[in-house]
Design a protein around this nucleic acid. Structure first.
Lengths: 250, 250
DNA sequence: CGGCCGGTTGACTAATTTCAAGCAGGGTGG
DNA sequence: CCACCCTGCTTGAAATTAGTCAACCGGCCG
């Protein structure tokens, strides 16, 4: 029913591993956002590009030594932990321009696994060198603190969601979050393809696959969205916001 | 049944607002842990002491401008958010030696409210000055990154708990977390007084007061703990750990 | 072609919430 | 000093939400 391709070519295709931070289309939402043109070159010097992952490949694993954080140039990453009893817990989804690996900073190893949901282009940022750079550029340090702060606040939003919201509210909120992130990239915000399978959505939202599936159907029946597998179209954003109980947020 | 007083006098009473960072009994778990003696004095210079709160008083509120982070010298703080529909969501409990206010870093305002659960002594750390100090002392910067990292990982533990665990597992985990924090302060780890009411526990764990109460009773009936109101004694820590991790379901 | 995987749907079950009542302790006012 | 009330906590019975089990569907791949 919906035939839509992800539109990655905002300015330059971020799949292209040879471009530098100055040219990158993600410059205004990624780390360079905090820097002046000449400073970006300094950042560029320490960034290692062309770390490309095929779908399903890990960017890092829980006990890998913490060396770097990673900027996502293209594709999508999910982070997850394995609980004591061997179950997977999805802790986050990351979109182009976002930074993964912050969970490793507290310890000398990562606390999550990070896995590509599709073909992903990654910029590796060795943390020691980056940290030196932050001492030089207070703006960058501030920006980085802000990144960690955002990580904390987004985790806390998830906590509220898991603690207080019904299945329907959770899924509605989830879809709106994705939509908002698409908008940030000047991509169509009411028509998109989910990069992750139902099982990951369910896991992330603290629900079962069946419940997620049922809610998708229910939302479609109420003419709030239409969908075909991973292709989603938001028809009635207001109703979705109402369902999510997030009237003022987006 | 249980008559126990909190034992705050590890070395010096942290209620005493006149002592400095060098003398503080919390030196080895608080920020000074990262610093040498002479460096601690520099930290001490920027710390504003004697911000003391009576029970129920706010340390900061959601939309207060972000200026400072706070070290807890004595007493307990809870952080919480108000959701769109006006409900309270407790996001954390903070004990002596721990730092509150990190949620403000991402924006220029706090994203939580912070409220004293009992009489609390607080050291205020103006963030701008602190940030300058971190540029001088890489150890301190590292320690602070670690603090934020810990905030992230503890939030993610809560996410897993809310997403995967049963009511019983949640409460067992909660009690073990408190116990571990008591141990960190050389305080009795199997006999303590909870600083927060049932309603806050329930809210934090994503349960209702009634469920929390029922689980407390169930744990007592199973001779895992005894309790009288807020006074808790852990009788069978092993059983509690067992309950917290993997339930004997499958 | 057949099997597998991801997704959907239905019927039933179990866990937690909701509603309601009651209890204990602390503080206040008569 | 006692009665009363208020708050926080406990307990029981009924209601509801989401989970479990199971069947089925369609596309994809060997």
């Amino acid at each position: 029913m919906i035939a839509q391709e992800t539109n990655n070519s905002a300015r330059q295709c971020p799949h292209n591993a040879t471009i530098n931070c100055n040219q990158c289309s993600l410059g205004d939402i990624c780390l360079p956002a905090a820097l002046k043109a000449d400073e970006i070159n300094r950042l560029d010097d320490i960034v290692r590009r062309r770390r490309d992952l095929v779908k399903g490949k890990h960017l890092y694993r829980t006990l890998d030594g913490f060396q770097s954080v990673y900027a996502i140039r293209s594709g999508h990453i999910k982070t997850y932990q394995i609980t004591e009893d061997g179950e997977e817990q999805v802790t986050g989804f990351y979109f182009p321009g976002e930074i993964v690996g912050l969970d490793g900073i507290g310890k000398n190893h990562y606390t999550n696994n990070a896995k590509a949901l599709d073909e992903a282009g990654i910029c590796e940022i060795p943390f020691t060198q980056f940290q030196q750079l932050t001492s030089e550029f207070p703006e960058l340090q501030m920006h980085f603190f802000q990144l960690m702060g955002k990580e904390i606040t987004s985790d806390q939003m998830l906590i509220t969601l898991l603690s207080k919201k019904t299945a329907e509210q959770r899924l509605a909120t989830f879809l709106l979050t994705i939509s908002a992130r698409k908008a940030r990239h000047n991509q169509c915000s009411n028509r998109f393809t989910l990069p992750m399978p139902r099982s990951d959505i369910a896991n992330y939202l603290g629900l079962t696959i069946e419940t997620v599936s049922r809610i998708f159907s229910r939302l479609a029946k109420a003419e709030t969205i239409t969908f075909s597998n991973k292709d989603i179209e938001i028809i009635d954003a207001d109703k979705l916001k109402e369902l999510a109980n997030l009237d003022g947020e987006f």
